[in-house]
Design a binder for these strands. Structure first.
Length: 753
DNA sequence: AACTGTCGGGTTTTT
DNA sequence: CCCGACAGTT
């Protein structure tokens, strides 16, 4: 019955079979984390736990799907009835049932980021506020973070610290926008992404009998990637598992070293608080890495050692040394692409690696283009994950907006999107009037349109539009989701609008509309809920709520053997035989947006750690000396993270190792003697990256005092070599082995005097 | 109301 | 470079 446990190592075994009470599993990369999670569920099932009383929360749909599939392998058909899915998807499903309890319609719509920004933009415009001072993006982030910290608009206004902060940031009106935003979402019968968590929290908080229902139902709660949970998500977990008489069966799995969503409010404080909140917590550390070879594991350990705050653990492997990590230095971004594809071709022909064992990872999605071009040129099948998802394309959103308006006439953002597309003579000035009317009479935008009637020239168009939409609404009674969507696409003239466009873009738009319709049809035909295994609600409203949470278009790829291209964030949790981590340059990785504090740099470093630990056997690190950015050629230095890898783990090709060594390690050692490890003494005072401005290398001369980010203050003893090859001997008094030879081309030094 | 051209700004990671 | 916002024109 529990034969499947045999393949586990002792710690894994304990983590799987300790099912009573709170459990924390700290799981290093490649340590069999997913295995532990899935086996744990299988073990619960084997012990007679009902599948529907297990709640398994993940962060991505992909992770959830994979988990269910793997439970299926171990536990059979029971697996499909386990509630396994993302926080957002599972809670939205519950909210759909319970929404009316907290004043939302069951057919509430979900505002995506674009809708939220658009709504904030409208508010700022309607109130004639300065949009320089109140940028929609920043306001949205602030609202999101307020919600994630359980600060309601009222609590926000009462919070002196927040208000002082806003005053100092010259956005004293922020709380008013926040208040209005929340009111407008409510009026529109809409929840944004954060609401899916926040409203569920409120439900548990304010409705004891409902809280009781879900507490009784979810006897076993499991959370994957616990390091990425925010305050609100942890709050929900506590609501579900901490109450009088609770069995407190909660199991959190995570790795502080892989926390990469701090920018979104995730905090590893949750891991630290977990111990305090759940007395008797049992902690298991999975430290053996089964994924990668020694060179990769050693490099990863070395790099992450530069981070300050972390939970102590030792990741080790008993695998072979394996191949050393290869570095590619390219002249520019085009050459970087070419050389990565050359390496891919070599892996294919010489090592016979299939495409699906190779991935190109980058910091920003925008970097994918060049690799795409080269792959296409070589006829290598590839798939890009992330980036603009199918459901975010204009034409797809247009049709969805029609459907949203049909389902929920209060949905203001959807209404604004469709009212004059295709053009029907209802322009901006009319809509501004309507918005004013709606505000003045406290009615919805839709009701304002109805009320306006045929008073002006545009009024006739409005009446026609309303009649059309009402016609659609009546059809919901008789048509299924697919037939209705088809009817709407045709009747609204949206389909014709795209079909009459014969440019390449237009054709692809039409195809996307078609693909969306196909997707709706598929939805109406399958019977089981993907994440809960329950009988599916096939209404149009249910469909819309479903797709609002999808990011990757799960379009079936014709090819099954493709090279994967994705951001490092998207790669979390995955593994490949060969990884190409590209664009390793200062400003890009670490990103210039995240160089303002030590904490931000540390998060970038964790991201780098996540990236390199995806590789099982082959790892390439590449950088370009120049690349196009905002239409201009930019020159960047190699990423600091390259210097942080021990040169012993790097393959010596093209002189790269010497260059990096010169940049960051002591003078060349003799023969094969063990080299002193590059330990930075703890006494080096922290240098604030914000004020650190490297001086041009050609200005550095003997006798100067300089600052180095890692080594602190130093005195230049001498400089030898010429132009590009100038090497300085510098005495850094704050570190062990104070005398360092540094290749000026690579080092970042700031002249002090 | 709709279309056209110009200007200036931003520019990360994701449910 | 690639958007979107805006002003000016039809």
């Amino acid at each position: 019955m529990t034969d499947f446990l045999k393949g586990l190592n002792p710690v894994q075994h304990q983590a799987v079979t300790t099912i009573a009470g709170p459990v924390l599993v700290i799981a290093g990369p490649g340590s069999g984390k997913t295995r532990v999670l899935t086996f744990r569920i299988a073990y619960l099932l084997s012990q007679g736990v009902k599948p529907s009383s297990i709640l398994a929360l993940t962060f991505t749909n992909k992770a959830a799907r994979e988990m269910k599939e793997r439970i299926g392998h171990v536990a059979g058909s029971n697996a499909s009835r386990v509630w396994a899915g993302t926080f957002h998807s599972l809670f939205s499903r519950i909210l759909r049932i319970e929404a009316e309890e907290i004043g939302y319609p069951a057919d509430f719509t979900i505002y995506d980021t674009e809708d939220s920004k658009s709504l904030i933009g409208s508010i700022i415009k309607e109130w004639n506020m300065d949009k320089e001072a109140y940028p929609t993006n920043g306001i949205r982030n602030r609202i999101s973070s307020a919600k994630s910290n359980l600060l309601t608009p009222k609590a926000y206004e009462m919070n002196a610290e927040q208000m002082a902060n806003d005053a100092a940031s010259r956005i004293p009106q922020f709380y008013k926008i926040y208040t209005e935003y929340v009111a407008r979402c409510r009026k529109a019968g809409a929840m944004d992404f954060d609401d899916l968590l926040l409203q569920f929290f409120r439900l548990l908080q304010e409705k004891p009998e409902i809280a009781k229902k879900y507490r009784e139902r979810f006897q076993y709660v499991m959370v994957d990637e616990f390091q990425d949970t925010n305050f609100l998500q942890y709050g929900i977990l506590k609501k579900l598992t901490l109450y009088n008489g609770s069995p407190r069966n909660i199991c959190a799995v995570g790795d502080d070293a892989q926390s990469i969503y701090a920018f979104r409010g995730a905090t590893i404080d949750n891991i630290l608080d977990f111990e305090k909140d759940f007395a008797g917590l049992q902690t298991f550390k999975l430290e053996q890495n089964y994924r990668s070879t020694k060179h990769i594991v050693e490099a990863a350990n070395k790099v992450i050692g530069y981070n300050k705050r972390q939970i102590r653990k030792t990741i080790w492997t008993d695998q072979d040394e394996g191949q050393k990590i290869k570095i590619i230095k390219a002249i520019n971004d085009t050459e970087e692409g070419r050389r990565v594809i050359d390496a891919i071709m070599e892996l294919k022909t010489r090592d016979h690696l299939p495409n699906h064992e190779m991935a190109i990872l980058y910091r920003t999605n925008a970097q994918s283009r060049i690799f795409e071009e080269h792959l296409r040129r070589h006829n290598i099948p590839y798939k890009i994950f992330g980036g603009q998802s199918f459901y975010q394309r204009k034409e797809v959103k247009d049709l969805i907006a029609y459907l949203r308006t049909v389902v929920n006439y209060r949905d203001e953002e959807a209404l604004k999107r469709v009212i004059n597309f295709p053009k029907r003579g209802i322009g901006n000035s009319t809509m501004s009037q309507m918005a004013e009317l709606a505000a003045a009479e406290s009615i919805t935008l839709w009701d304002a349109l109805v009320k306006a009637g045929p008073l002006t020239r545009s009024g006739k168009s409005i009446v026609k539009f309303i009649e059309m939409m009402n016609g659609f609404r009546e059809k919901t009674e008789t048509l299924n989701a697919y037939d209705l969507a088809l009817w709407v696409a045709k009747e609204s003239r949206l389909y014709d609008e795209y079909a009459s466009d014969h440019t390449i873009e237009g054709i692809s738009r039409k195809e996307n509309i078609q693909a969306l319709l196909d997707g709706i049809q598929e939805f109406t035909e399958s019977d089981e809920e993907e994440y809960t295994g329950e009988v599916k609600d096939k209404s149009l409203a249910s469909y819309l709520q479903n797709i609002a949470l999808l990011t990757d278009a799960d379009e079936g790829v014709d090819e099954t053997d493709f090279v994967s291209l994705m951001s490092v964030h998207a790669a979390k949790g995955l593994e490949f035989l060969a990884i190409f981590l590209v664009g390793l340059e200062e400003q890009l990785f670490p990103s210039f947006m995240s160089m303002n504090s030590q904490d931000e740099i540390d998060e970038e470093r964790r991201l780098f750690y996540v990236a390199i630990t995806r590789a099982k056997a082959h790892l390439w690190l590449t950088f370009a000396q120049s690349r196009y950015r905002y239409g201009q050629m930019r020159y960047n230095e190699p990423s600091r993270f390259l210097e942080e890898i021990d040169t012993d783990n790097l393959e010596d090709t093209g002189g790269m190792v010497q260059e990096l060594e010169a940049a960051s390690t002591p003078k060349a050692r003799v023969g094969g003697a063990p080299r002193p490890s590059v330990q930075v003494a703890a006494s080096v005072r922290a240098i604030d990256p914000a004020t650190f401005r490297p001086s041009p290398s050609n200005e550095i001369e003997a006798g100067m005092k300089v600052l180095h980010m890692k080594f602190g203050e130093g005195e230049v003893m001498m400089v030898d070599g010429a132009r590009d090859n100038r090497v300085a001997t510098i005495f850094f008094k704050e570190i062990d082995n104070p005398e360092r030879r540094i290749m000026l081309k690579f080092a970042k030094l700031m002249i002090v005097e």
